[in-house]
Design a protein around this nucleic acid. Sequence first.
DNA 1: ATGTAC
Length: 472
Amino acid sequence: MTARLTQEGPYRFRIEPTGEMRVPGVVFASRELLIEADQAVDQVANVATLPGVVEASYAMPDIHWGYGFAIGGVAATDPRQGGVVSPGGVGFDISCGVRLMAADIDDAGLRPVLQDVMNGLDPAVPRGMGRGAVWRLSGRQDMMGILTGGSRYAVERGHGDERDLLRCEDAGAVADADPGQVSDRAIERGSGQVGSLGSGNHFLELQRVAEVYDTAVAEVFGLRPDQICVMIHSGSRGLGHQICTDHVRAMEKSMARYGIRVPDRQLACAPLESPEGRSYLGAMAAAANYGRANRQLLAHAARQVFEKVAGARLDLVYDVSHNLAKMEEHPVDGERRLLCVHRKGATRALPPGHADLPDDLRDVGQPVLIPGTMSTSSYVLAGVPDGPAFYSTCHGAGRAKSRHQAARGVSGRELKARMERGGIAVRGASWRGLAEEAADAYKDVSAVIEAAEGAGLGRKIARLVPVGVVKG
DNA sequence: ATGTAC
């Protein structure tokens, strides 16, 4: 399927429904950001063919090609119209997301002890392919607690403070998790990885607040100029990956039985109201809780290093997933409907006044955490009223070069030396992994943010720059 | 993203 885009706003393009498409496609981006997104735009059109899809198949400004759905894709389905859930619309790294903590020291206070803090974090933050973990599970009971209780269970077991949970999406745990739908193999893969970064673009960074665009909202979030922050990007490791694999396979087998045909095999799906659909949703929610517990443990490990080495406290700003499907109420055709909103490489961005926000954030909107690259800015946005795309925005810079291309351009050793000359401390897991994550392998995150803000998907609150990178 | 294939 070749999709044709027509511009209908400064940062809004439309794909007219043709063929099997049930709704239009809508891509929020600038012309420049779309130049190399052809395959991903085809995927936006493919998603528009899914049974029960409502309103439009959306894409965020950092859109790029992914498994079935584009990364940066958002699509909602209605169970009352035979709507489906598709694991490809969540991604292999279920509940991958970002956590931001703010320190009670500023850049000048950190500099004298920066290397000591980095040397403390280096052994305290397990990372790299297949490696784990902060928490050695004592048995099946701990795993069940994590799968149903997420960050809440981690805090109950002493890995954090009760007040952390107020600043977690879903107060730290997704409801409706069904550990019974998680395979033994997934549990086995996940049991030695609770509290580990993983590899690829996952990281723990020390960052400095370089610019504040809205002082009042930043203050509510807990951010001020020159302050040191810790940002964590990680997900559900081998457990989420195995759950995705298991349920894609089951759905591939059941699709014919439900009379579902999709233009791409990777769009395997099942009706929300079917045993296969419900089974995936229960397992996915369990993986989401694992991902949140994982970030809670990493945060707590960083907190202990900061306290011991720098005498500094870390307060949670927010924790939000950018790979998840959630049942949410949204107005469609003037009627409030319960929809399954798939966000894959897209961040939920609740507007001011939303009932699901904690009391202290309700007047200002949800903090939206957008990591850039190891050498460029990250952003904190806030959700805005009337956000299109079911209150969603972008999730990062978006890859521009393949991993192979990136590693050909620079060696890991060269890149680390270059970053350290620029004042950024680096603790990697592998030289190859470092080279693959070079900033020039990504699009310009500032252009992505400009498009997101221009399209009305969120608004800028603060810009952060890297000071130290602990890389998976 | 991922014990980079079962």
